[in-house]
Design a protein around this nucleic acid. Structure first.
Lengths: 265, 265
DNA sequence: CGACACCTTGAAGAGGTTCAAGAAATGTGG
DNA sequence: CCACATTTCTTGAACCTCTTCAAGGTGTCG
């Protein structure tokens, strides 16, 4: 609490600098693409597809959309027609109630699928907002269902994606229901860096795409608490923080914070 | 805070009295059944099936299992093979971590499906515990996938069930992330009674199948806080409580507590 | 009836929030 | 390119909600 904060020098970008846009309502641009050449294929599609199957599955993705920072991919109440695979960029999904509550339900990055919330009632129940300029592949849900009746592996894949989301949310419930502020932020950072690492980025450095307020909303904390907890971690020498640049100095300490602390239940 | 508690007389059972079992590890019994005669059909299956389709879909349910109170239907780590449709009874699902954390992720009643968490990794990631003697229909997942390749309406139904679970969990995240104790308990009671009402039970009376501790775990509160909040509601004349018997006297007040209160973010 | 699980209530304390002010970064427009 | 406005972040102090610890009450079951 009394140590001078080490300055976080030499933090490298985790991706090309996002060109900034001034919240245009929505900005999309159609491009033809093919899953077969996509380097995110292992994240989006089932493994071990035959070449012919892959060609057919390419049919799923009609067009690719660009979404500028601050723009929404879809909004609560909008008609559901498609799932979206994120090619580049970073999103948040959030729900809002009439009485002004707002809850970030997740942060999504390249290779992840958004829109699953819309299936049950044919309308989206949350907003998906790009936190940096993004590109997504639009996959009409009719086509997905059609092709997954044909290809067992695709069918299974779709089921797994939905199940994974359910399990992920169980983890968030555990976090929100039983962890204290430090544990929540530690778990959050470890989760982010692990997912980034799986995409070829650093295991220890990350550039937060979201504000303290958005982190707080996701973690069930106020932005001041997020900020204070970051400062605590810095004082303890666990991370270096410079605004949105974060370097994890002591991963083990973070893991200890998440796991070791007793109490709870 | 100073009013005498009204006694909750005349609370009727919401279902036949559960015969109590003393936590046998697992107690199952196979019975042949058919969806076509099941009065929960509208909850489990898509609407508007033709008779022939219904006959085929009957094939999904191989056997019906009995699970005694306190027994588990499946456990974390167990191989995933099937989904379960609850015919009678009441379950909780919960996850536990090595460090002793424990989180109830949901309470499930007749007509609801459990086991979706197991799809993604072929192993269950939570425990499903019967809170009263229960009967479930075992539906091998292979058969479900097979038949939903054949019947579009079943395929869509499966997708909707999974999407519904995702949306439900978003709601829990909102609750855990942004509500205070009274709001959480009010939302919980309204949700329970609404689901019971959809099954033909009273709109205002319910018999809690879970302990204060389990409610607390689900709502991210300690059991003492749950108890105190119940007492507060009783003092305010909003509900009558006698152990696990609850009568909602003023539904509007509960709704106000959930919606109106500002604060939050 | 005694043991046990569950529930209630009180008092003290901790963790997180609220309110407020100021600093740092970012974006805007001349 | 610099000055100004805006957004975002940090930090302090007071407050509040919920937790913790403790004790006693209620109900149930063998």
């Amino acid at each position: 609490m009394f140590d001078a904060k080490p300055s976080a020098r030499g933090l490298s970008r985790q991706a090309e600098a996002a060109s900034d846009a001034k919240m245009p309502p929505i900005n999309t641009q159609a491009i033809k693409v093919a899953c077969s050449n996509c380097n995110l294929r292992e994240l989006c599609l089932p493994l071990g597809l035959k070449a012919e199957e892959l060609d057919r599955i390419d049919e799923i993705v009609g067009i690719r959309l660009k979404v500028r920072r601050g723009a929404t991919l879809f909004n609560n109440g909008e008609k559901f027609t498609a799932l979206y695979a994120i090619r580049t960029g970073f999103f948040k999904t959030c729900i809002a109630t009439e009485d002004g509550r707002d809850q970030v339900t997740g942060f999504q990055m390249a290779g992840e699928i958004i829109g699953l919330d819309g299936i049950v009632n044919d309308h989206h129940t949350c907003n998906a907002v790009a936190l940096e300029d993004a590109e997504v592949c639009l996959m009409p849900f009719d086509r997905i269902e059609e092709l997954s009746r044909e290809f067992t592996s695709l069918q299974r894949h779709v089921h797994k994606i939905m199940s994974r989301e359910i399990v992920r949310e169980h983890g968030v419930m555990l976090l929100l229901g039983s962890m204290r502020a430090e544990e929540r932020l530690a778990a959050f950072l470890l989760n982010l860096v692990q997912r980034l690492h799986a995409r070829g980025f650093s295991q220890s450095e990350l550039l937060l795409r979201m504000t303290r307020e958005e982190i707080g909303s996701y973690l069930g904390l106020k932005l001041e608490t997020v900020s204070r907890t970051f400062s605590k971690f810095v004082d303890d020498g666990i991370v270096e923080v410079q605004q949105r640049h974060v370097r994890i100095v002591n991963t083990g300490a973070l893991k200890l914070i998440v796991n070791n602390q007793q109490s709870c239940q």
